[in-house]
């Protein structure tokens, strides 16, 4: 299974019934499960995000074991490279906001039921999978329809652009909408209100440029006057960093 990547290193693990394959699977499956458990149980979101990285990388290795290098590459690039970094940025931006395990009645009431639900769900899922009869095609991949170019970028790209063209286009549309949504959500509070109103009022690109310029000038003016502002501002800041009501 993993021959293509391990033979390159001078080691042939592709012995039928190789113990290395089992050990490799056990190691990275354990890493993935431990990573997931730490994500759920850590009180610090920073630790959660880092152990999510461990989970993602282990899953990437498991994808390699399943002969799917392109998905493994996308997994590491998209999840470990982009998603976890974005999470870490937001956690750093929000600062230390640990979850307080308070003795709230509702939380205490819900806990056992949630745990029972999850254990039941996991038990049923794993039980059904273990009990079902899988066809054993692992050792005879070359005989299947996909043949020897299984999992290569060109084969996946061909599938994308022939059988799943509409889905491909819709996915790109979803990404575009999410990008616009991220920008809209990023403009918060008063700045958002003012800029949205001004942007809606302006028609031409020149007018929009003028709005940006005036907004920048205003920002500079407020920055300059900020140090001489009365000390009541600091009291407002201490009050949970709330924005003053406008």
């Amino acid at each position: 299974m993993t021959s293509a990547f391990l033979v390159a290193g001078g080691i042939n693990f592709d012995v039928p019934g190789s113990i290395f394959e089992v050990a490799l699977f056990a190691l990275f499956a354990l890493a993935a499960v431990i990573g997931a458990i730490v994500v759920v149980s850590a009180s610090d979101p920073f630790v959660s995000a880092l152990s999510l990285l461990l989970n993602f990388v282990s899953l990437g290795v498991l994808y390699l074991m399943l002969d799917q290098p392109f998905v493994a590459l996308a997994q590491v690039l998209v999840y470990a490279g982009a998603v976890v970094v974005l999470f870490l940025f937001v956690i750093a931006y929000l600062g230390d906001r640990r979850e307080v395990f308070s003795d709230r009645r509702r939380a205490k009431l819900v806990w056992p039921f949630a745990l029972l639900t999850v254990l039941g769900l996991g038990g049923i899922l794993v039980g059904v999978i273990i009990g079902s009869d899988f066809p054993d095609t692992v050792s005879k991949l070359a005989d299947t329809a996909a043949g020897h170019d299984f999992g290569t970028p060109s084969a996946i790209g061909e599938t994308f652009l022939t059988d799943y063209l509409l889905e491909f286009e819709v996915t790109s549309l979803v990404l575009l909408v999410a990008a616009i949504g991220g920008i809209v959500l990023g403009l918060t509070g008063r700045a958002r209100h003012d800029r949205m109103r001004k942007l809606m009022q302006t028609r031409s690109a020149d007018q929009q440029k003028a709005v940006h310029a005036s907004a920048e000038a205003e920002l500079r003016r407020t920055r300059r006057t900020a140090p001489t502002a009365p000390r009541t501002d600091t009291a407002a800041d201490a009050d949970g960093g709330k924005e003053p009501a406008s």
Binding site: A36, L115, V126, F134
Partner: peptide, 25 residues
């Protein structure tokens, strides 16, 4: 003893349950 795909699918069931625990708890 070889690694069969059902091991991977069973692992995915376990991970899904852990994720659901996080969402609920």
């Amino acid at each position: 003893m070889t690694v069969s795909p059902e091991w991977f699918v069973a692992l995915s069931g376990v991970l899904f349950a852990i994720g659901a625990a996080g969402v609920l708890l």
